[in-house]
């Protein structure tokens, strides 16, 4: 089956021809399968933001191609807006882009731009608000009266309302407290399950990525450093650390236990897994390998 997104040899150079010339992404190739929940990780300056702005056509590649459902998104540059409706992008701190008088109208901005009928817009707004965890009575309020966490949900609903095939979220939990973070991620997981569409989650937090995604794409210095399931990626913990990235704390504990002679898989990344492994080990009696 054709992958939903295919990136081929993507390069983007800022300030070409000046002394400040710099490639933010360099010869990047990867693909995303339909329905996949992909985590994208890399520290600031690794090319993450530049990459995601290419996926919905906000930036045009200096060279290389991006295929959405098998079609080059720049095949017809005049219709690039259609691509933006299909690949929804939620920026970092999206609450700062709210502008309408009511929550309802702000969420309706995207679907209205798509040219939907008022009935279709209404359905899209209500459905998106529900997915984002916003109750009905909030819809008539001004977005500026809401709490920080609620504002962010409004902004996310504004993108979900366009019913994109691919939803990209750039650091959706930045600045939220642990509970707010967990609740928002639960909403996103539920949305993914209900819709079965493709999600790209960009994050700085390995823990957050590890617990939510099917596959991880690790970027470093404008290149893909590695990609694979969380287990495959965390098995290469040393490489991650040398790239200046975190390894989940549980993985670090597992490695420390292995260093102490316990037969523990050093790539486990949830406390449940590690607890189960330790309990099994103790029962088996062969504590030292």
């Amino acid at each position: 089956m054709e992958p939903i997104l295919r990136v081929e040899h993507l390069t983007h150079t800022y300030g070409s021809g000046t002394p400040f010339e710099r490639s933010a992404v360099q010869d990047l190739s990867f693909q995303v399968e339909a329905g996949e929940f992909l985590g994208v990780i890399g520290h600031t300056g690794s090319g993450k933001s530049t990459l995601i702005q290419h996926l919905n056509g906000l930036l045009r590649p200096t060279s290389g191609h991006i295929y959405l459902d098998g079609t080059d998104i720049w095949a017809k540059p005049k219709e690039i807006r259609q691509v933006r409706f299909q690949v929804g992008l939620v920026f970092q701190y999206p609450e700062y882009q709210l502008f309408e008088e009511t929550v309802y109208r702000d969420i309706a901005f995207g679907p209205t731009n798509m040219g939907l009928t008022p009935e279709q817009v209404d359905r899209a707004v209500r459905e998106a608000a529900a997915f984002a965890g916003l109750s009905e009575e909030l819809l008539d309020k001004s977005p500026f009266e809401l709490s920080g966490g609620q504002k962010r949900r409004v902004a996310i609903a504004g993108v979900i309302a366009m019913d994109p095939k691919v939803l990209i979220l750039d650091e959706p939990t930045a600045g939220l407290d642990p509970e707010g973070r967990e609740r928002l991620l639960a909403n996103i997981r539920a949305y993914h399950q209900a819709k079965g569409n493709t999600i790209l989650l960009v994050s700085h937090s390995m823990d957050e990525i590890a617990r939510n995604v099917d596959r991880i794409l690790v970027l470093k210095d404008a290149h893909v450093l590695m990609s694979g399931t969380p287990r495959e990626v965390f098995a290469r913990a040393e490489e991650l650390e040398s790239a200046g990235l975190d390894v989940p704390q549980v993985t670090r504990i597992a490695r420390a236990l292995r260093d102490r002679g316990l037969a523990i898989d050093p790539a486990v990344y949830t406390t449940e897994e590690l607890t189960a492994a330790l309990l099994a080990l103790k029962k088996g009696g062969s504590a030292v390998c």
Binding site: P178, E182, Q249, T271, E272, T275, L279
Partner: peptide, 20 residues
């Protein structure tokens, strides 16, 4: 209180729950 604990403590807590 709506806070999490570090994974280290969580692991030890789970193990204690299992009688360690």
């Amino acid at each position: 209180l709506g806070l999490t604990v570090p994974d280290t403590v969580e692991l030890l807590y789970e193990l204690r729950q299992s009688g360690w």
